[in-house]
Design a protein around this nucleic acid. Structure first.
Length: 477
DNA sequence: CTATGGCACGGATT
DNA sequence: AATCCGTGCCATAG
């Protein structure tokens, strides 16, 4: 009896830990990544099937349109509506790369920026150039700059240098233009060339000259000195400097995250968010927040019922086969359960997040309220690491159209940084960091002057002594 | 002498 | 246990 109990206990613990491990693994993937893993699973596991008949992942009803008209209906009281929705973009299993499954490079391209670039240049790549492209993309740092010399890479890949450089050129000219440059300067130059035809040549030439010959001066915003050195009229230099600030970025990789760094216009969103928030206004009623959580795959995932039935009929005739099928079914059940659990967790998480940060969603950075993952974990009754995983590597689209990392909801200092920005924007004369710190403390925010300096840097704002009339130039390390 | 940025330490968060 | 963040101290530039 005791043995039996122990045995059952072990079994139970085993399946539970397997279940837990899988749930955790799924939870920390973003929608696209999960989609890939599920696709793999579908290919390998006959017991798992994707029914094309689409059902609303929130209520389970058959779906005739996106999003589910029942679940995604604005409420009258203006409370946020949170619902799950399958991605429309992935209509099924199209895939243009109809042939060889052996692309080893796919394994390395989970990161969205890399995928995004790869997609653009895929058509131009010969097969043997693919691994090269994949390798180069892996060497990009977080700013989108390349850390390794082409010569080294060619040696490592045992490929001709010319080929490596050809691929690199392709990458550099894909969106976002300038990734894969070896320095901020090179990146800026590539971006300038790409703008050929959109601005006058004289402006472009001057801008190029400034970057090549007077880059350190530009970083210090010393326009007079630049004008003297290049023998150009100050007015032209000012114009060119403004052009550089507005249209170019030394960190092409950052534009990708929709970070505040891209001074100026909205760049197109380079990837799809995992959650999307919009505002739906119904007449004069208070606008309700519509929170759409994307689940991967269009269709419904389930355990293949015919296989399950066949397995039971088979009995013990073919023990080996039965064993195999049993495992497949078990795993398929596990997968579907875990996906459901992931959806459930994401939904509960977003519920809290949206309610707590409603002001932030509506009014922007300044209204972000402090919030830590552990607090959310407490109120949700789950472990902290669960929240960490749920937040990790996910992005969210705000009503403003910006796509930001979900972790921004937990940023400890975003609202203070926003205050700093406001203060500087409204300053009559350049304020020193100390004065900014004072101004903040008058608002009840106590931060050290050193901290103000750090925030300033994060915002890409120059120190007071370099901050005159014209707007700041992004500081380059 | 003043304003900043670099380094590193300690506490909080993950 | 690892990482992030605010801060103090000190060197440096103007």
């Amino acid at each position: 009896m005791q043995q039996l109990r122990q045995f059952v206990g072990n079994e139970l613990r085993q399946t539970t830990t397997a279940h837990l491990a899988q749930t955790m693994a799924f939870l920390q993937l973003n929608t696209t990544e999960l989609e890939n893993t599920l696709m793999n699973e579908l290919n390998q596991n006959p017991a798992l099937e994707l029914v094309d008949e689409r059902r609303c992942p929130t209520c389970g009803r058959k779906l005739t349109q996106h999003p589910c008209p029942t679940c995604a209906r604005p409420t009258d009281d203006g409370a946020p509506v949170i619902y799950l929705s399958t991605r429309q973009s992935f209509g099924g299993r199209d895939d243009s790369s109809g042939e060889d499954r052996s692309d080893s490079y796919e394994a390395h391209t989970r990161e969205s920026l890399e995928e995004f670039i790869l997609k653009q240049i895929a058509a131009e790549l010969a097969r043997e150039e693919r691994p090269i492209a994949a390798y180069i993309l892996m060497q990009l740092d977080e700013d989108g700059l390349l850390t390794e010399e082409p010569v080294e890479m060619a040696a490592y890949l045992r490929a001709p240098l010319a080929t490596v450089e050809r691929v690199l050129t392709l990458i550099q000219h894909a969106e976002p233009v300038g990734v894969g440059a070896r320095s901020p300067i090179e990146s800026l130059l590539i971006q300038i060339e790409a703008l050929q035809g959109t601005v006058t040549d004289s402006l472009r030439n001057l801008a190029r000259a400034i970057i090549v010959d007077a880059f350190d001066l530009l970083a210090r915003n010393d326009l007079r000195q630049i004008a003297r050195q290049l023998r150009s009229p100050l007015a032209s230099v000012e114009q060119a400097a403004r052009f550089i600030q507005r249209n170019l970025t030394p960190y092409p990789g950052r534009a990708y995250w929709g970070d505040g760094k891209t001074s100026g216009e909205e760049l197109p969103a380079y990837h799809e968010a995992d959650v999307n928030i919009t505002m739906q206004q119904r007449g004069a009623a208070p606008s309700a927040l519509m929170v759409e959580i994307f689940t991967p795959l269009a269709g419904t995932l389930r355990v293949n019922p015919t296989l399950r039935a066949a397995m039971q009929e088979l009995g013990d005739q073919d023990a080996g086969k039965q064993e195999k099928w049993a495992q497949a079914v078990e795993r398929a059940t596990l997968i579907t359960k875990c996906v459901q659990q992931r959806n459930h967790t994401m939904r509960r998480l977003m519920e809290i997040l949206v309610n707590h940060q409603k002001d932030f969603i509506l009014n922007g950075d300044g209204s972000l309220k402090p919030l830590t993952r552990s607090v959310v974990a407490k109120t949700l009754g789950v472990h902290e690491s669960t929240i960490s995983r749920a937040v990790a590597s996910k992005t969210i689209g705000l009503p403003s159209g910006r796509i930001v990392p979900l972790s921004k909801f937990f940023d400890r200092s975003l609202s203070v940084r926003d205050r700093v920005r406001q203060i500087i924007e409204a300053e009559p004369r350049p304020l020193t960091d100390d004065e900014i710190a004072d101004a903040l403390s008058r608002d009840g925010i106590d931060v050290a002057r050193r901290t103000v300096a750090k925030y300033r840097n994060m915002l890409g704002i120059l120190p007071a002594n370099l901050r005159h009339r014209p707007a700041a130039v992004p500081v380059v390390a």
